[in-house]
Design a protein around this nucleic acid. Sequence first.
DNA 1: TGGAAACTAGAACGCTCACTCTAGTGACCT
DNA 2: AGGTCACTAGAGTGAGCGTTCTAGTTTCCA
Lengths: 200, 200
Amino acid sequence: MELFRRQGYNGTSLSQVTEAAGAPTGSLYHHFKGGKDELTAAVLEESGTAYGQLLEAIWDAEPDPVAAVSAFFEGAAVVLEESDFIDPCPIGTVAREVASTNDALRQAALGAFQEWSAAVRVRLITAGIGPAEADELSVALVAAIEGGFVLGRTARDADLLRATGRRMATMLRAELDGVTAPAQPNEAASMAHASGRTAG
Amino acid sequence: MELFRRQGYNGTSLSQVTEAAGAPTGSLYHHFKGGKDELTAAVLEESGTAYGQLLEAIWDAEPDPVAAVSAFFEGAAVVLEESDFIDPCPIGTVAREVASTNDALRQAALGAFQEWSAAVRVRLITAGIGPAEADELSVALVAAIEGGFVLGRTARDADLLRATGRRMATMLRAELDGVTAPAQPNEAASMAHASGRTAG
DNA sequence: TGGAAACTAGAACGCTCACTCTAGTGACCT
DNA sequence: AGGTCACTAGAGTGAGCGTTCTAGTTTCCA
């Protein structure tokens, strides 16, 4: 997983993997009959569930969505710094590399993203945010995390991730305070925001 | 550039490039003496300035930041759909692939991100947003764009990019309405929204 | 018109890749 | 004790990689 975080899918060779693992080629192909693709799928699944569990753990510890999001971004920033700016997440990297050429891996990555946004969505709804807003917010939060990873890693500066997280937290607080207008400006309703929205 | 958008850095071979260009290997190495790395740096620079110009053009056409951001995300979503979900931006992909192993390319990617966020920052300040808020917002917007690319491409669904864009536009509108709390809690300004916040 | 430089052209090179194959070893049943 | 099978072990294979090299062609200016 660490090699994929450093170098992505195409940049990581199986010889690097076997060397790092101290295992011969035969063992690798014994446990992963599908070869590199099956190994990569396992990496994506593993890190997908790991982040999913981390997310749940943080949200359990900090039930307030603003605090939870802040804690998540701050934790990611610390990880980024302490790992010498290895990518915190192999999924986004691999997804962008192979989305056009390897549908199985694309869907494995998609599964992780969907798991995360679904988990966030549940928490937001629990906190009193409407389903439509929670849909958008959960997607935007996952996007912001992935984007923050890209910026922080590229700049070797975790503060970019922190800045992004601060903004998302601020946005979330505004939403919880019922302060933001509905997403679609086609209604000039007094308070009722009966927002029709495409589900896509 | 299209090959890098599809396959990233390590996934794109120079034989693919020369074949797509209809040029022999000798020509490639004549024009790019530095080989693959110099070619990649050119790709990053080219697409970096292209997006920078697109951003300025959109913002010229739509001086209102909310409209500009909405237009930018919507345009990106259309590009994503019409290109059969090729990555709209090779920079993020390449950056994640090589940030740990190739410092020259890492810095080339960083230059593009910095150019974009600086341009956004200027526009936000012009629209009346304070410098500190504009710093954070411009970084968060670039992060959201990159993250939206990842999600939209991985899911083959541009609506994820649209949802992210809608949220960022909403956030921006709230900021312009002076509705959100300041980013730094160290000042209790006249309108007195002194909100204590944990930084970590 | 001649000659240097810019550029095209693609074969060839050394290397590493993902993967296969055969042989050997250990643990676990009965 | 013996046999089965999960597993280790690593040499070997063909393909493709980035790069180099030599030869040929075109362009351009004196």
